[in-house]
Design a protein around this nucleic acid. Sequence first.
RNA 1: GGAGAGAUGGCUGAGUGGCCGAAAGCGGCGGUUUGCUAAACCGUUGUACGGAUGCAAAUCCGUACCGGGGGUUCGAAUCCCCCUCUCUCCGCCA
Length: 415
Amino acid sequence: MLDPKIIRDQSDWVRQQLTHRHYPVQYLDAYLNADVVWRDRLQDVDALKNERNRLTPKSKPTPEQQASLKQLSDTIKSKQDELSVLEESVKKAALLLPNIPHESVPIGESEDDNIEIKRVGDPRIFSFEPAPHEAIAVSRQLIDFDSAAKIAGSRFSVYKGSGAKLERALINLMLDIHTQDHGYTEFIPPVVINSASLQGTGQLPKFEGDLFKLEGTDYWLSPTAEVQLTNLARDTIIDEDNLPIRMTAQTACFRKEAGSYGKDISGIIRQHQFNKIELVQLCHPDQSMAQLHELLGHAERVLQVLKLPYRVIQLCTGDIGFSSGITFDIEVWFPSQNTYREISSCSNFFDFQARRSMIRYRDKLSSKVNYLHTINGSGLAVGRTLAAILENYQRDDGSVDVPEALIPYMKSELL
RNA sequence: GGAGAGAUGGCUGAGUGGCCGAAAGCGGCGGUUUGCUAAACCGUUGUACGGAUGCAAAUCCGUACCGGGGGUUCGAAUCCCCCUCUCUCCGCCA
């Protein structure tokens, strides 16, 4: 949710910023028009209510007073009904407005205009043709795609034996890094969540089609623990002294991946269910940009520990997500595809989610409340990390070296 | 699944039709006292939305808000209905 005052007072600027992210501007105009009408009527109704409050006596009124007040009340009631409809439409329109990109975000049309910030680690030179991760996973009996298709469907996977253990080892390694070295508190939240939570972080109402819904209920399967962790703070006021609040969770994430037909159909890059370690921070507004870069470093650290080559890119205005004000993606090297693939996305939402979710902090000096900033990132997507390990650590005999950092968790050196 | 109790401000907790935006306490903020800290004492302290003034910090005006929604009434935290959630007991169960 954007600050209504900014939309009104600087509508031309807002219009331009939203154009940069290909936002259909007629939605903004719809909002502005609804807002004007609503405020106009609001003043009328408030004036009538004021009259009623002034005229209503403190004790039992005369019959004549009662009669005229009754008439006034009835008038208010019907005008209030009209006003409520208008207010509802303003709120609905406001929920469809995306975040305004931060001024430092490069203007661009699509992912082709994203900017590479840096590359870390040199891709290994192979003396043989590197196999794709799914071939390795199948031949080493780490993942059983056929069984997954049988018990669920396509875009699911069954991890087995060392494959399941590797997934678990990665989860433990990542959570240990973030809780022990980076100061995050670990959570295990529900993966079944309600629509208020999804509206709070911005998945609803606009992206209903990307989500699994439990039939006949208000329950959904969470697409990311960002939703659960951020909503832990919904409708709360946090003392400034307690900021930043750092939360992490490993959860299964569920996405319909509608509209991605033909994309990444083999392997575990794009699944309906996948594990992800999420990092969420609640920040003081003055600190959020610095914290975002720190959080990005927390995610990078996992790849450094695993000695996987990666790069960091900054998303352009045409590619950042609906709720995000600025996003950096981390992409890990996939030798079989000769390319980097997304493994983490780190964003600053500024006060966008905090406004939707009513997450505020109390300023120490003024003791006023104000919206805080939310930032989050993956740290990391577990399945994609596992896939990257299979590819980057494969040997010419088809086996896979266990990365040094995982040996204590795996208690073996070879897959 | 059955029976009962409850939901009030940052927190605890009074309040059964008008004197209630709401007692009291805690916490917060300001002050007095003090070498400093603590204690004590005094004062102050809700949020959202709209409007006005101001460069702004802010100030003033209005409206609403006692879990959510609807109803009764001239007037609702208070009475009625529906929903959600929490707690207790019973049943069932990983």
